[in-house]
Nucleic acid binder design. Sequence first.
DNA 1: TATTGTTATACTCTATAACTATA
DNA 2: TATAGTTATAGAGTATAACAATA
Lengths: 169, 169
Amino acid sequence: MAADLETIADDKPEGTKQELRLWLQMLSTTKLISQEIRRRLRSEFGATLPQFDLLAQLYREPDGLRLGELSKRTMVTNGNITGLVERLEADGLVRRETPGADRRVTVARLTDTGREAFARMALVHENWLCDMMKDIDSAMIRTLFAEMETLKKSVRNHLSEGEAGPADR
Amino acid sequence: MAADLETIADDKPEGTKQELRLWLQMLSTTKLISQEIRRRLRSEFGATLPQFDLLAQLYREPDGLRLGELSKRTMVTNGNITGLVERLEADGLVRRETPGADRRVTVARLTDTGREAFARMALVHENWLCDMMKDIDSAMIRTLFAEMETLKKSVRNHLSEGEAGPADR
DNA sequence: TATTGTTATACTCTATAACTATA
DNA sequence: TATAGTTATAGAGTATAACAATA
C-alpha cells in the first residue's frame, strides 16, 4: 500500500527517534525563552520564574489557595512551597491565613500590594512574549497551543503508574 | 472579506494574549516532562539534566569541544561550565586536554567509560520519551518539531539587541 | 492513623564579577 | 589589549526525609 511506503520512507530521520528530537528542540527553545524571561524578571522586578508562576496562580484565585493545591498547580513540592511563600510574604506580596475550623489548613492569597504588583509584571511580561513571537502568525500560535495541550495529556497518561510528581512523604 | 471576519472572531480568546497562553502551556508541559526525566536520570544514573545535555553535546563530537563552544551550545555560562565539567571529570566520564599550541584552550571530550555510559543513558532516555508521547501520532511530532524550530528562530531574532544569553564578563 | 504543613539537609544550578594565564 | 578559562560568591531551586500539629 502507498501508506506503508510513506511510513517506511519517513520513519527514521537519521537513527535518532523523532520523539527525542522533538524533546530536545522543546527543551532548548524553552530554555532560551525562560533564561531571557528570568533575566528580565530579576532585573526589572527582583522576582524569579517560580515566584512569578506562584503569583499567577494566586492572581486567578481572589479567595486564595491552600498550600497543597498551590503545590500541585506549580509542580513544586509541599516542602518547597513553604520557602517560596515565605519569601513572597517577606516582600509583602502574599499573606497566609487559616480560614476555617480545620486548623491544619493554610491558605495563601495576594495582598493588595501583591495584586497590583503582579498586574504590572504580567502586562510587561506579556509584551516580552509578543515581541519574541513576532515572527509567528496567529494561526500557528493557536495550533501550537492545541498540540502542546495534547502532548501534555499524553505525558500525564504515561507517567510511571501510580505517582504524580516528585515525592513528598 | 471572509478572512477578516475570521480573524476578528478568533482574535481575543478571553483577555489574555495567545502568546502568553502558549508560553505558559509550553512551560508547564516542559516542566512536567523534565521533572520526570530528571527524577529518572538521577535515580537510575545519578545524573542531572544539565549533565545529560553536556554529555550529549560531547557524544556528537568525537574530537571533543572547547569549553567556550560547549558553553554556547548548552547555554550555560563559561564560569559554570567549569564546575559542570569538573563534576563529570570526577566521575570519570569526561577528560580535559590542551590540544594545540595555544595553551589557553581547553577541550573537553568523553572518556571511553563516558561514551559507553552515555550510550546506555541515551537509549533508555529515548524510550522514556517514546513512552510519554505514545498518544501523539508521527505526523504531529514532525509538525511540532518544525514549529518549535520556527519559534526558536523568532525568539533569537527578537532578544534584546546586541546580547546573547546571560552575562559573563 | 491519615492529613496538612513545616523543618532540616544536601546538593546542583544560576548569575555576576573579579581574576589568571596566555596571546 | 583581548581572549580562554578559572575562581569566588551569593542566592534560589530541587529532592528527600523526618517532624509537629491537628483531625
